[in-house]
Amino acid sequence: MDTVLTKSTALVRNPNMLGGIILAVFLAGVMFLGGALVPYDPFKIDMGNRLQEASTLHWLGTDQLGRDIFSRIVFGAKLTIGLGMLAIFMAVCIGVPIGLISGYIGGRMDAFFMRIIDGILTFPDFILAIAIAGILGPSLTNIVIAIVLVRWIVYARVVRGLVLSEKEKEYVLVSKTSFSSPIKTIRLHLLPHVMPDIIVMAAIDVGKVILLISALSYIGLGAQPPIPEWGAMLNDGQGYFQVKPSLMVYPGLAIMVTVLCCNLLGDGLKSHFDIRKGRQEL
C-alpha cells in the first residue's frame, strides 16, 4: 500500500503527467458515458434547425443539416480515440514481436525484416497511408489497416535497436547458458526491458494517429458522412466555414485536446521511467 502511495504521489508531482491524467480521465468519461448522456441523436437531421447559434438547447449550435454539434462531438470521441488506440495497439502487436525476434536472432531473419522496413521507409508515411487507403477504398476500417501497415515498422525498428544493445548484456548470456529457449529469453528478459520505451512511444503515437485518421477523413478517405468522426466533421463543415466557423472550430478543438492529452501523458511517462532508470544505474 505504501509503495502504491509513493508511486502515485511521484506520478502526480510531475505536472505533465498530472495534466495528462486529468485530461485522460475526462476523455475516458466522455468516451464511455458520453453516448448515453448526449441530449440529441447525433444522426438525426432536422432541416428546420440548421446552422443554429449556440444556445441552451444546442450547447454548441447545430450544423448544416440541423444535427446537434455537441452530441456529434461527444459521440465521435469514442470513434476517433478508440480507432487511434486500436491502430496503435495493432501496430505494437505486430512491430514489437518482429523487432524482438529480428534483433535477438539476427542473421537472415533480421536481414529479411530490415529490408522490408527499409522499403516501407522510403515513402513518407502519410503518402503511403493515402495510397493504401486509396487502393483499399475509403472507409474507416481501411484507414486503420493503412495506419497499422505504416506504423508497425517504427516499433519494430526501435525494439530491434534496444534488443541489439541489450542482448550482449551478461544476464542475457546467462539465460542462454541456462538453456532457456530463445522465446523464454525474449519473454523473461528482453520484453520487460523494451516495454517502458514502447509504452511512452505508444502514448505519444496515439495522438499522432488521431491526427492522421482525422486528416485522412478530412480529405475524404476515412470516415464517410454521416459518421461523426472528428476529421469527417471538419470536412463537413468546410463549405460553411465563412458563415459558421464553429462547425470546424469545435471538432478541431476536440482533436487538439486529445492530442495534447496524449503528448502530456507520453512526456510524463517518459520522465517517470527515466527517473526509475536513473535510480537503477546509481
Binding site: K169, Y171, V174, H189
Partner: peptide, 12 residues
C-alpha cells in the same frame, strides 16, 4: 561472468 551488476536482470 565478470560484471556482477549486469549479470542479473534489473527488472526481475
Amino acid at each position: 561472468f565478470q560484471d556482477s551488476s549486469s549479470s542479473l536482470n534489473p527488472k526481475l
